[in-house]
Design a protein around this nucleic acid. Structure first.
Lengths: 222, 222
DNA sequence: GCACGATCGATACGATCCGTAACGGTCGTT
DNA sequence: AACGACCGTTACGGATCGTATCGATCGTGC
């Protein structure tokens, strides 16, 4: 879904600043070592290859071998910097996710939650971040380090903006401060369940309902 | 994670009387064919081996080869009846889950939800059903058939008793009937997120909080 | 200047697993 | 009595993982 122009390779743009267009299939650039230090071009090419691969075939076709082939890199180079497949997935996930940050400036909790959920679903749909997170969750079901990383780092990061919204709402008196933690868990549970079942389309009705139930309670339902 | 309980003895319950040809010192019991029909002993031995393997090493060490070795069965026999690894996981999951059905207390929604969540966590802890479901979810992130099975069959089955409780509550006027669907999704999201992150210990406080928020709303917080 | 050493890509290895094929043997069904 | 679906064994091709080895590259420290 991204850039596909088979640009005629002019130069390699070797400086530290790496553009993300260094991924085409050139004859044999043979990106060699640049000395006793990490080659930023290799790092960028590997992450870009992993990202594109995830975007094209999803987690199903994601393998270190395939990434190495696509990036024109050696597997030892990948394993040197990302000790496991999970780490590479995390690198892709965090790089893609960093670009999209939702602003919770709405004022009412319900609107904040809905906007955030819609923005997150959109990011998961339109970047490989969704596939990356799905893969990480999958690996966490069989590998202990991935599980620790998931619920010690990634899920807290996922819940952080939600918790921030809930904190604001608590300060405004919209919710009981004692409930914010569980409310954040319920929201992230909703998001995660939708992601893992492939239901991240822009279902505004469902998002609206979720936000209303969790933001305003439902005791006084219509 | 991996708090492997010695869940049950390795007895192959129901179905058919099985001689102890699985663990004895005999070199090769060689359970042969019984003619042009399915051998219940083979089926029971395979499912039992899969269940025990899940209970001992979790989804990480679960493979068809390992199950075949343990069951003294041939891989073709397994693939004949369970066309994919996912199907075998489902067989284990549904067999273990069938034993434990929580009865709704028919009192108030909050208590029903809490009791059900606690019973489910308990079953996931003390039988391999939790490991099986985690494996199915993991495979659903990379295989389309598993995904279809998960959210077309398993998750609806998981949500069914919850939806029933919510239906009762709606008839009692406790919740708006229009909210039952999303409430069921939120509850199952809570359960699933806890399972996938290995947090299915008997956290009564959290379960209580979840039940209170979803059952009674939280607009009138203390 | 110069040896050291970490890096690069290429290749290969052992191990594991998947899903299927071929085969001889078993035994109800027809 | 022939048929055919079943069983377990063995084996295969393909894919993947993670690691080892190698020659070449080129900053860094002496």
């Amino acid at each position: 879904m991204e850039q596909n122009e088979p640009f005629r390779s002019a130069n390699v743009s070797d400086t530290v600043q790496i553009e993300e267009m260094t991924l085409s299939e050139d004859p044999r650039p043979r990106r060699a070592s640049i000395g006793a230090r990490r080659n930023p071009a290799a790092e960028a090419a590997i992450v870009a290859a992993a990202r594109d691969l995830l975007g094209e075939v999803g987690f199903a076709g994601f393998s270190i071998d395939a990434v190495a082939r696509r990036a024109g890199a050696g597997k030892p180079t990948i394993y040197r910097w990302w000790p496991s497949r999970t780490d590479l997935l995390v690198a892709v996930y965090e790089r893609e996710r960093a670009a999209r940050l939702a602003e919770p400036e709405t004022g009412a909790l319900k609107g904040d939650l809905a906007a955030h959920a819609r923005a997150l679903f959109s990011a998961w749909r339109e970047t490989p971040a969704g596939h990356a997170l799905r893969g990480i969750v999958a690996e966490a079901q069989g590998a202990e380090p991935a599980l620790v990383l998931l619920w010690g780092h990634l899920l807290p990061a996922l819940a952080r903006p939600i918790r921030a919204m809930l904190g604001d709402a608590a300060r405004r008196g919209e919710v009981d401060p004692a409930d914010t933690e569980m409310l954040a868990e319920l929201v992230s549970g909703f998001l995660l369940r939708r992601l893992l079942t492939g239901q991240i389309d822009d279902d505004r009705a469902a998002i609206e309902r979720m936000s209303r139930i969790l933001a305003t309670g439902r005791g006084r339902a219509k």
